[in-house]
Design a protein around this nucleic acid. Structure first.
Lengths: 197, 197, 197, 197
DNA sequence: CGGTAATCGAGACGGTACGTCTAGTCTTAAA
DNA sequence: TTTAAGACTAGACGTACCGTCTCGATTACCG
């Protein structure tokens, strides 16, 4: 006997999932995170509120899920050099921050993390952990190549890349120009080498 | 005839300002930014809500004002070396982020900046601009001393220090150990030198 | 195809209507009209404020609706004589004014009528018009019986009964004794006959 | 040594009294009783709120005082007949109710009486008692003239006149035409005679 | 093919905070 | 001590939102 393939009752309509996600992204872009209401999502998605709460535990989780979808860690190219690899990572990070939806939602989402430990955990496991592995891999490759005298701390390099890009966009409120990429990459290389003392 | 020294009517009671500010800080520390309500502030400060809204346009502006107060840029010591100066700046930044009140309020406040351009402007003018001047001064001193071959971009160094510290605490959710200070300072030195290429 | 019998969505819970009405009546009796707050009604009825405002446009309309409910014109007996019929009407009127809920709410409600024309219109159509019909019927019966030489003006008789009872209770602040009934009835008979000149 | 004729300090400015009274009457006429605020009175009278509260205990007492002023019981003429005297009283009563200021304020004031016993007492002593004396005098004259077989109850006649006029204007919301005067007077005569049984 | 069970849109539910407004009191400087 | 001006505490107002619940109407599988 096989296990039943499907729970009883009417199955969920995947078009509803899509409509909710699209509505969230549009609303985040149009009115911002704070002004986004679940009723507005339901109205724009032409969906009942129950259909939303059947899928998401809270407003924060709703936005988080809609944002994370399609943000799966994109594979970094192996450029053959530490600075090239880091430049690619910086490029990627700034690209994410430049997405208008992400830019509008990130600070609000970050604030929610303080209140909702379960979302914070998912954020750490999904986004941060994934990136940390990429950074660790990239540093390991550089060490094997002999570009690094010693193994570097992935966390510091990660913080340098992610944080400097974040500060540039969200704290200093400056536009991320292409010229910024090699400059952040350079300081990340220094962080990897432990230089500057 | 002299100009009248005081507007007509009963002057504002500065003890009310203080009571409001203290109540906000206590509540931010105790219940967090999101759960802070204006009624709770009024109750704890033993103040009418009108007294709060006479001084502050909204809940966000209220918290921002209470938090920014006392956050005036603290003078950085001239340690005589670039790495020393930057270490002092990193130390200060991590210290601010370690303040439980600041730690609890920062993400929420950052989210508010996205929605309220006037607060965002005040944040830029008050906090960011003040720090940028400190960074610029510190870099100028290093250039004069001959530690830097060329004048460095204060914005990048600023973003490196502020952002890496921010990411460490708020994105990677790691505790700021004392050992972190020289490491961030070192990558900031590299950013100032434009090294790492 | 039949027309759908019910509007879409969750239907209103009639127990909520009842709970609101009961809470209003209890509070009017206990604390009076002026001190009645919508929050207190919500709390006592164990109901959200939204449920109240979904049904009633304002505090005034809320109390009016709660009070008018159950005040539908009670049928007057046909006693066979003009003075008997009028005595019954006076009895009824004084009875209504003696109800503690009505007594506590009437002046406040009357004041609201001045400000809110829609409530005033409902008051006229519901309460005044209903009573006026009763008075007109009663006078018509007396005319048919030959007790009246000419048809009397229902408005004057109505004003005489309602007004004298109102003035006794609310303006002169005297208790409505049983002995008052025939005396007011007598002057109403005179008003019907057009006597006294 | 004489007793000091005047309290120490600056004497009150009687123009302030007048300005307050005028402002109250204008506002009652313009916006009604419920929408009349003490701040609005102060602003229109170009007077500080303290000057108002130095003279009046509460908003209700303020309006009451402003309304009662100039409403001192006007002397009734001795027309030589009961029906003539009562017609004069009805005329006066309807005249008062026709004053737009009185018409706008009366129901609200009546509602306040329920809550503020001191104003209710003043209302009884000032207005009701004064009128009752007039009614009693008028009835006594009629008895002496032989128009009444027995002494009549002033309270019932008072209630009949005052209440019927009140009901006509405030409950039935009908305009007080001149033809109404003799009709109310007639039923008041019947009340005095105890007829109608 | 009829029954069971979970879905759907719609919208009412309890609860709670918002920002506004008012009443009545208090505090200035000036008269 | 009065004046005008206006800040003060306290608390109700009506609105908006969250997350839950309840309708009638689908929509799949299971027997």
């Amino acid at each position: 006997m096989e296990p039943s393939k499907q729970p009883p009752g009417r199955p969920r309509d995947s078009r509803v999932d899509d409509a909710i996600r699209d509505a969230v992204r549009e609303l985040v872009r149009d009115v911002g995170y704070a002004a986004l209401t679940v009723d507005a999502v339901a109205a724009r998605a032409r969906v009942g509120k129950a259909a939303i709460y059947r899928r998401h535990a809270s407003r924060g989780e709703l936005v988080f899920s809609a944002l994370v979808h399609g943000l799966e860690p994109q594979p970094l190219p192996d450029t053959g050099s530490l600075s090239g690899d880091l430049a690619a990572l910086v490029q990627l990070t700034l690209g994410v921050f430049s997405d208008p939806v992400v830019a509008a939602a990130t600070p609000g989402l970050l604030a929610d993390l303080k209140q909702q430990p379960d979302i914070a955990a998912r954020f750490q496991e999904t986004f941060i952990a994934g990136e940390r592995v990429q950074v660790a891999d990239l540093l390991e490759r550089a060490f094997v190549r002999g570009e690094l005298a010693a193994r570097a701390d992935p966390a510091l390099v990660h913080a340098a890349v992610l944080g400097t890009a974040f500060a540039w966009v969200f704290l200093l409120a400056q536009p991320p120009t292409p010229a910024l990429v090699p400059r952040i990459a350079a300081l990340a290389v220094a962080a990897a080498r432990g230089e500057g003392a």
